[in-house]
């Protein structure tokens, strides 16, 4: 059924990760992504993978869900691996056949690139799995607020996102209802050629648009009736507050990032100091 689509893939829970402030989660995810670009060798990648595994563990997300989030991009992952494998330049040829040549360096680069992609995907999925879309937009708004002075309409952007997200399930439910009603009146949506099929959709699309406009209109009236006039001077019902767990999250991410930097540039740093 249409309504079986889970919205924004939020997976409700009450774990440490779920309870983190959305701003914390966005920043931590961002720092982690920077980390994946700094990491170069097995040790640093090992640290990143360990960190992600730890997060998945304490967020109590089922592993199947995490795997599912990688699935849509598996073709790109394989391609990344193959292209680097066969085009990488290097000395140590480990396999060659006619004009195809795989070097150890190329293989390593391919694995690294694919791993980097997987880590990016998994981390951003964990963010959306553990944060409800509404809370996420709250977080985005709060983080964009400092940029208001250079003309970023933080509140308006967030409000638009919130409303759009809020109405996705409503419209899906509405579509489901209208489809059922027209099916009960004998409509068949899988019959005939393309033109006929497109025409068959009218009995769904017209009521759907009418209802979307009606809802938009009602919402606008309701917002105006409550004196909504944009973000100027607005306070909010759910204040975002940093808690102790956010500090824990920041510190552990910070340690990870510093460790990666030390492993990568540690020797240079020592050299500089001497």
């Amino acid at each position: 059924m249409l309504t079986d689509i889970t919205l924004g893939q939020y997976y409700p829970g009450n774990s440490f990760v779920h309870r983190l402030d959305p701003r914390t989660k966005i920043i931590v995810a961002f720092l982690f992504i920077i980390g994946t670009f700094i990491a170069t060798d097995a040790i640093t990648y090992g640290m990143l993978i360990g960190f992600v595994a730890l997060i998945i563990g304490i967020s109590r997300l089922p592993m199947s869900l995490v795997v599912k989030s990688i699935k849509p991009l598996w073709i790109i992952l394989i391609l990344t691996l193959l292209i680097h494998m066969f085009t990488g330049q290097g000395e140590n040829v480990i396999f060659s056949w006619r004009f195809l040549k795989v070097t150890q360096e190329g293989l390593e680069l391919g694995v690294k690139m694919s791993l980097r992609l997987i880590l990016l995907l998994v981390v951003s999925s964990i963010l959306t799995f553990t944060t409800s879309p509404i809370v996420l937009t709250d977080g985005i708004e709060a983080l964009l607020r400092p940029f208001r002075s250079i003309g970023v309409p933080a509140h308006e952007l967030a409000m638009m996102m919130t409303i759009a997200l809020r109405f996705i399930p409503t419209l899906l439910g509405e579509t489901d209802r209208i489809m059922k009603a027209q099916t009960a009146r004998g409509a068949d949506f899988n019959e005939g050629n393309i033109i006929k099929r497109a025409k068959n959709l009218l009995p769904i699309l017209i009521p759907l648009f009418i209802s979307a406009f009606r809802r938009a209109d009602e919402l606008a009236v309701a917002m105006e009736a409550r004196c909504y006039r944009g973000g100027e001077g607005r306070t909010r019902m759910h204040q975002l507050v940093y808690k102790k767990i956010d500090t824990v999250a920041f510190i552990s991410t910070g340690i990870l990032l510093i460790a990666i930097i030390v492993v990568r540039w540690g020797n240079d740093l020592c050299g500089l100091l001497n």
Partner: peptide, 12 residues
């Protein structure tokens, strides 16, 4: 024949 809740919403 099925008349849904708020059937006027299916008019097209």
């Amino acid at each position: 024949g099925m008349v849904f809740q708020y059937p006027e919403h299916q008019i097209f």
